[in-house]
Design a protein around this nucleic acid. Structure first.
Length: 371
DNA sequence: AACCCGTGGCA
DNA sequence: TTGCCAAGGGT
């Protein structure tokens, strides 16, 4: 890692902000510095690309124009606004924080990064972003862009996958961020990281700060940032039960914690569940597996079904750390609709449009819906 | 501190 | 297809 003199820091600030003034992106949440606007956009942008966020942000401001509207929003409406964005705890924490602002702070926003950290869903990055952009506090906002940009500028070789590395960057950026335009500085770093100093195929030759880019000048920018790799997703085989009575489908509500919390899906049974306790699970035939599945559903849910697998009805969906391989099984339900023993409800296609559904459920539905 | 938590774009 | 990345936070 190299260090910069005070005069070099001044020169960098000028080069960066001059470029930002002319070439900075015009984004919906940059039309003012309203903390509500900044805050919602920052939450949506967590681990999500700008082009994906733009339509969600515009619709969100249409549905929930003020922090009070958000605090008072019905749960179902809130989740529909977030449907497809992923990381759904962001939406729930967003409303939790809105209620904190309305009730605990009487509508007056905390104005420092330290205070903002007390709000649900706001961590060190988002606190720095809101404090600097909305309130002008000279604090760093260290996101993936800042890691990448500054690791190259200064040849910082700490592993950005490690928790403690954040402090290294916050300390360094703290000496470089200008006190008069901290919000513009942080946003300029993000624009730089998404234009010239990108993760793949960077265009440092034309970067407005290429004279300050030590890794580029040394021809080693492909070595930055240093980041250890994550393990690939584990594969989990499931059976997806498509149980229908006329135009109604039996849906199950997922637990209130964990992956896809509280979402409706077709009932899902892990293949592993059917094989535990067997002496030679590897010898089980497909037909025997179906029988085991029917017994499992009968025991746990009180449903006597005749399940029919169909070829070509496999659905796959990859999350950050899991890959689901779902074999769809059909069953026509001819009994009454008593669900005393089953934690679910019968839903129709019109319900599917009204409710927020996770992508994997939509994939299953597209495979089985009548055309 | 390591792991969990979604989805879409792209080479 | 696979792997990686994208304005991270919670536990």
């Amino acid at each position: 890692m190299i260090t910069w003199s005070p005069s070099k820091i001044k020169a960098f600030q000028k080069a960066l902000l001059t470029w930002y003034d002319t070439d900075g992106r015009d984004l919906p949440w940059r039309r003012d510095h309203d903390p509500y606007h900044v805050w919602v956009s920052e939450i949506m942008l967590q681990q999500t690309q700008v082009n994906t966020v733009i339509p969600y942000y515009n619709r969100f401001m249409d549905w929930f124009p003020t922090v009070t509207d958000l605090a008072d929003a019905p749960e179902e409406r809130l989740m529909k606004a977030w449907e497809g964005l992923g990381y759904y705890s962001r939406a729930r924490n967003l409303q939790k924080a809105a209620k904190q602002v309305v009730e605990d702070f009487n509508g007056k926003w905390p104005r420092t990064a330290e205070e903002l950290l007390d709000l649900a869903g706001i961590g060190p990055y988002t606190a720095g972003a809101i404090a600097s952009i909305a309130f002008g506090e000279p604090v760093p906002a260290v996101d993936g862009n800042a890691f990448r940009v500054f690791s190259r500028l200064l040849e910082i070789d700490d592993d950005i996958a490690k928790t403690q590395t954040r402090q290294v960057f916050e300390q360094v950026i703290g000496t470089i961020i200008p006190t008069d335009r901290p919000g513009d500085f942080n946003q300029a770093i993000m624009d730089l990281g998404s234009s010239y100093m990108t993760a793949k195929n960077p265009d440092s030759e034309n970067s407005p700060v290429k004279a300050f880019d030590q890794a580029y000048l040394d021809g080693v920018e492909d070595q930055y940032p240093v980041k250890t790799k994550k393990p690939r997703p584990v594969q989990i085989p499931y059976f997806g039960l498509v149980i229908h009575a006329d135009d109604r489908y039996l849906m199950e509500k997922r637990p209130s914690t964990g992956l896809l919390a509280n979402f409706w899906t077709f009932p899902l049974v892990k293949r592993e569940t059917l094989l535990t306790g067997l002496e030679h699970p590897e010898t089980v035939t497909d037909e025997e597996l179906v029988t085991l599945l029917e017994h499992e559903v009968a025991e746990t849910d009180g449903l006597k079904l005749h399940l029919t697998p169909r070829s070509g009805k496999q659905v796959t969906h990859t999350f950050t750390h899991q890959k689901w391989l779902i074999t769809l099984m059909d069953a026509e339900w001819s009994g009454d609709l008593d669900l005393s023993y089953f934690p679910g409800e019968w839903l129709t296609a019109s319900d599917f449009e009204r409710l927020a559904l996770p992508k994997v459920q939509d994939k299953m539905w597209q495979r089985v819906r009548p055309k």
